[in-house]
Simulated scan of single mutants.
Amino acid sequence: MLNEFKTFIMRGNVVDLAVGIIIGAAFTAIVNSLVNDIIMPPIGFILGGVDFTNFFLTIKGEALPTLEETKKAGSVVIAYGAFLNAVIQFLIIAFAVFLLVKGINRMRDMAIKQQQSDPGPPPPLPADVVLLTEIRDLLKAR
């Protein structure tokens, strides 16, 4: 069973998946910072100094000025501002993945076209055809 597990883990696609997950986690941190620290502040400023993370609806309990304070007070809230941030992050990640896949597809298509336009040397003739050609040439030479 241990050998089977080692074989499974060392397959190329499992290792590739692990690398993809690690890079995805790092990419998510970058996108989170991009949305929370770069994109949302100007949008909030344009909308009059609004902080989207503090958009929430109190269902039960006391509504305080910030989401964090309201949650600490034990109130039940729907944090739709945080959800809005998550949707924006998703759209950015989805767009980045779209661009990546589009670039890979373009490179693959270029490689296929290059292979089609450059067929390389012709395949060698079979031995019997070569022999018959030599016999023909010798008979012509006589």
Score class of each variant (00 low, 15 high):
Arg136Ser: 12
Asp37Pro: 08
Asp109Pro: 04
Leu34Met: 04
Tyr80Asp: 04
Arg142Ser: 12
Glu68Pro: 07
Pro124Lys: 01
Ala26Tyr: 11
Thr70Met: 04
Ala26His: 10
Asp118Arg: 14
Ser117Asp: 15
Leu99Asp: 01
Pro126Asn: 13
Gly48Ser: 02
Ala94Glu: 10
Ala127Glu: 13
Leu91Thr: 06
Val35Trp: 00
Leu64Glu: 01
Val35Thr: 07
Lys113Val: 12
Gln114Thr: 15
Thr133Gly: 12
Gly103Val: 00
Ala96Leu: 15
Thr70Asn: 04
Ile135Trp: 05
Leu64Pro: 09
Ile22Phe: 05
Ile93Asn: 03
Glu69Leu: 11
Ile112Asp: 06
Gly74Gln: 00
Phe98Val: 04
Val31Ile: 12
Arg106Cys: 08
Phe8Trp: 13
Lys6Asp: 09
Thr133Ile: 08
Leu132Glu: 15
Lys71Gly: 05
Ala86Ile: 05
Thr58Asp: 02
Asn3Arg: 13
Thr53Gln: 09
Gly12Pro: 03
Lys140Leu: 11
Phe90Lys: 05
Leu64Cys: 08
Leu125Met: 14
Gly61Asp: 04
Asn13Ala: 09
Tyr80Trp: 05
Val19Pro: 05
Ala29Ile: 14
Leu34Ala: 06
Ala127Ser: 13
Glu68His: 09
Val129Gly: 12
Thr133Trp: 10
Glu134Cys: 10
Ala25Gly: 15
Glu62Val: 07
Met40Asn: 04
Leu139Lys: 12
Asp16Val: 14
Thr28Gln: 07
Phe52Arg: 01
Val77Glu: 00
Asn85Cys: 11
Thr28Lys: 13
Leu100Gly: 06
Ala82Glu: 13
Ala141Gln: 11
Gly20Phe: 00
Ala73Cys: 05
Ala94Gly: 06
Asp118Gly: 07
Ile88Cys: 01
Lys71His: 06
Leu17Ala: 11
Val50Asn: 11
Leu125Lys: 13
Thr53Glu: 12
Ile78Gly: 02
Lys102Trp: 09
Phe27Val: 09
Leu67Met: 09
Phe45Cys: 06
Phe90Ala: 06
Asn32Leu: 08
Met110Tyr: 13
Ser33Leu: 10
Leu131Ile: 15
Ala63Gln: 12
Ser75Ala: 10
Leu99Val: 09
Arg11Cys: 03
Leu91Met: 13
Asp137Met: 11
Ala18Glu: 05
Asp128Glu: 15
Lys102Leu: 11
Ile59Ala: 06
Val97Gln: 06
Asp16Lys: 10
Gly103Ile: 00
Arg136Ile: 13
Glu68Ser: 06
Ala29Gly: 15
Asp137Phe: 10
Asn54Glu: 04
Arg11Phe: 00
Pro42Ile: 02
Leu57Gly: 06
Leu47Gln: 04
Gly48Cys: 02
Leu17Asp: 02
Ile46Leu: 12
Leu100Thr: 08
Thr28Glu: 14
Phe55Glu: 01
Ile88Thr: 02
Ile9Lys: 10
Ile39Met: 01
Pro42Tyr: 00
Glu62Leu: 08
Arg106Asp: 13
Gly24Trp: 03
Lys113Ile: 14
Gln89Met: 07
Gly120Val: 03
Val130Asn: 07
Thr70Trp: 00
Tyr80His: 03
Ala96Arg: 01
Lys113Ala: 13
Val130Trp: 07
Pro124Trp: 00
Ile92Tyr: 01
Leu17Thr: 15
Lys140His: 14
